[in-house]
Design a protein around this nucleic acid. Structure first.
Lengths: 224, 224
DNA sequence: AAATTAACATACAGGCTGTATGTATGCCAA
DNA sequence: TTGGCATACATACAGCCTGTATGTTAATTT
């Protein structure tokens, strides 16, 4: 019992209807709190040490519960990892969604989405989880169906809207390739590559493919 | 002792200088044979079950030796995996090299190299080893330094030779992104996607970036 | 031929995963 | 309110795996 947790000392009187000390949490609350603690602890460890080098005892200690609880809420270690990834993908999705201004023409939307994606992937550990560990642990199929599916779908849509290739390429086949380039860009930046240059290269690539003309010049300074 | 191996029954007379049965292999031969058996068995299992779900006892049974031999020749399980990957990368490299005709102009060389890469990646299990398990087990850095480094270098060279972007992009930053697209193309094809369309999309992407005009039409039939 | 080293095989000590089982508490119906 | 049931855990255990230490045989060196 590594975590003392201030156990309620016997509960003197059941008089007061206002539960101050013993805090009789509802089952729902207990479940939510436990799952959250596990997911948080697991994420931190998976990011820092990788899936293979993270043990369930470790996760449980970090979360302040026992393995019994873990295996009560999750099927197995992989399932725990899957749920961590799910949450991560949803967070990324929400972040991208929130950063996309509505009512843009197709090319602008495509470029805005591109930047939003790269921004979202800068959250610490996100690339490792979604792009490195995920595909190996869960398989590419499952991870793509999780996260990339959304990004790739947006991309496909954007490319189509920009009339890319004019029928000489399959957009369905092209989109995943471009999506992979985005992923690598995120990984490179996360690994310490020149973020500015990598970002610029990715956007150049998108414009090049979509046939969008280069912008005025550098972001802040406009040609007068 | 799972492998009987037809142990020489006591060796009746040491007379004949011609060693027929006991086959006194030199240490070098023993080492080579054992390492090869281990690498082959390990590759097969890593491809089929992944790194995490492959145990060293399993590998040893498949190779027909004991764990003692494995840990004599390799530092640990990761080292075994690393050697498997090394061999795989070298094989891919050799295959690409062999398929590259010399004396082509820059754009042709770039396209030829692109096709050669996709061809090389069609060897069964290669994408899983080099592109899925590798980055997760050894880290992206190490894997890139192994295989991609070569491919990315060729790509960078090819892009530069084609004067891509004309100074408006960093080729050094662009090359890894395109390399990632190649990898995804290989993975998609391996996963059962439309190989024809994926291949075409990848080549279109390369031409698009390098500013190479589309070929006449379909490979076999030329416009008259 | 003796000594040394390489190439294994065997045995063992931890650690981890998943499951079975026990317990206390929230919840619901009578 | 109270008895029964389900939920949310904790504990204990069996099996497997990894890496290391140690023993044994065969090749190589001296």
């Amino acid at each position: 019992m590594p975590r003392s947790k201030a156990k309620p000392p016997l509960r003197a009187r059941p008089a007061k209807p206002e539960p101050v000390k013993p805090a009789p949490r509802s089952n729902r609350d207990r479940t939510d709190a436990t799952r959250l603690a596990l997911l948080d602890a697991a994420r931190e460890l998976f990011v820092r040490k990788g899936y293979g080098d993270t043990s369930t005892p470790e996760v449980c200690v970090a979360a302040g519960i026992t393995r019994g609880a873990l295996y009560h809420h999750f099927v197995d270690k992989r399932d725990l990892f899957r749920q961590v990834l799910l949450r991560e993908a949803q967070a990324a999705h929400a972040q991208i969604e929130a950063a996309s201004p509505p009512g843009l023409d197709a090319p602008s939307a495509l470029l805005a989405g591109s930047e939003a994606y790269l921004d979202a992937m800068r959250v610490a550990g996100r690339t490792r989880l979604l792009l490195l560990e995920g595909p190996a642990v869960l398989g590419l199929k499952e991870v793509l169906a999780l996260d990339e599916a959304h990004a790739a779908a947006s991309l496909r849509q954007g490319l189509r809207a920009c009339a890319v290739g004019a029928g000489s390429v399959s957009i369905a086949a092209l989109a995943p390739l471009l999506a992979a380039a985005f992923d690598r860009a995120a990984l490179e930046i996360d690994a310490g590559a020149d973020a500015q240059a990598t970002r610029a290269a990715m956007l150049w690539l998108v414009r090049s493919v979509a046939g969008i003309a280069a912008p005025a010049a550098k972001p802040a300074r406009r040609k007068h």
